[in-house]
Design a protein around this nucleic acid. Structure first.
Length: 271
DNA sequence: CATCAACCCTGAGAGC
DNA sequence: TGCTCTCAGGGTTGAT
């Protein structure tokens, strides 16, 4: 499941190795209608043809491709991926959903096995981002501000961190890893986390995201993206195994309909 | 406002 | 070997 580091890795690849900035879109194919959020396929194909790619960025888990007169937004959800290629492909094209053909003969495919991903072609990205929370890696999110945000909610900290309107970009893997590093029990009501612990948590979130980016993200769920962060998980999907810090068996519980992994000893409930 | 369940999907893995 | 069943998971939506 692509989270912030996986999306960042893909965005950097599109800018550097794939170098799609500057290319002009000649044609497009919509192979699965529902992969397109807006507009309808016919209108999408009319509007996107002729537009040039001006920039590739990321906002939360969204890939943001700035075009001449609009923006193409891509959310990979569970199983989405992006491939850029020229000539004959040796790739498995089975789950290609939307394809853009460029002026230089190369093309970009949005491939998505489980069909949860979505693509938007819009005038204003903000209309899609909605109330997306702050970027966790930006300096403007200070420890003090983070503490204040936590203190305004009585929700359990794990589901709160997953809420994209709280902070943008965290998913199941990186929240579990962050809470372990900060030594915070995932069921802790957010407003009970003291200032110093809030600071530790923000640091842990950043540490984990930066390491994920450094390792080019994680390749799990049989979706191989080249990253290897999956080999460094401390708690995620390690239930039944010993904690790397204290040896206690890692547990798995369900919070907010999400599998949650933690060490009962290193992440004790507040007394 | 918070919580919860259903929904969208596929393929891996378990059980038989 | 091959069938059927269950399950995971991000985000949206609707109900409580």
């Amino acid at each position: 499941m692509p989270e912030l580091p996986e999306v960042e890795t893909i965005v950097r690849g599109l800018r550097a190795a794939d170098n799609i900035v500057g290319k002009t879109i000649m044609n497009s194919q919509v192979l699965w209608q529902r992969s397109l959020a807006v507009p309808l396929a016919v209108e999408f194909q009319q509007l996107i043809a002729g537009q040039q790619i001006l920039a590739v960025d990321r906002r939360g888990k969204f890939i943001v491709i700035k075009l001449t007169s609009q923006s193409l937004l891509i959310h990979l959800r569970m199983s989405g991926d992006i491939f850029v290629e020229s000539g004959e492909t040796m790739r498995n094209q089975k789950h290609d959903r939307i394809i853009l053909d460029f002026d230089d003969g190369s093309r970009m495919a949005f491939n998505d096995t489980r069909k949860f991903g979505r693509v938007w072609l819009v005038d204003d990205p903000q209309s899609v981002f909605g109330k997306l929370g702050p970027e966790p890696l930006e300096e403007s999110l200070t420890p003090g501000l983070f503490f204040e945000k936590l203190s305004r909610s009585k929700r359990q900290v794990k589901p709160l961190l997953l809420d994209q309107t709280f902070v943008a970009g965290l998913g199941n893997i990186y929240t579990d890893e962050s809470l372990f590093i900060a030594g915070i029990n995932p069921t802790t009501p957010a407003n009970l986390i003291p200032l110093d612990k809030a600071g530790s948590l923000l640091n842990a979130v950043r540490e984990v995201l930066i390491e994920g980016i450094k390792r080019n993200g994680a390749s799990i769920d049989w979706v191989y993206r080249g990253g290897d962060f999956q080999n460094y998980f401390k708690v995620y999907q390690r239930d039944g195994d010993p904690c790397i810090r204290c040896g206690t068996t890692i547990e798995r519980i369900t919070l907010g309909q999400r599998g949650t992994h933690y060490c009962p000893h290193c992440q004790p409930r507040l007394a």
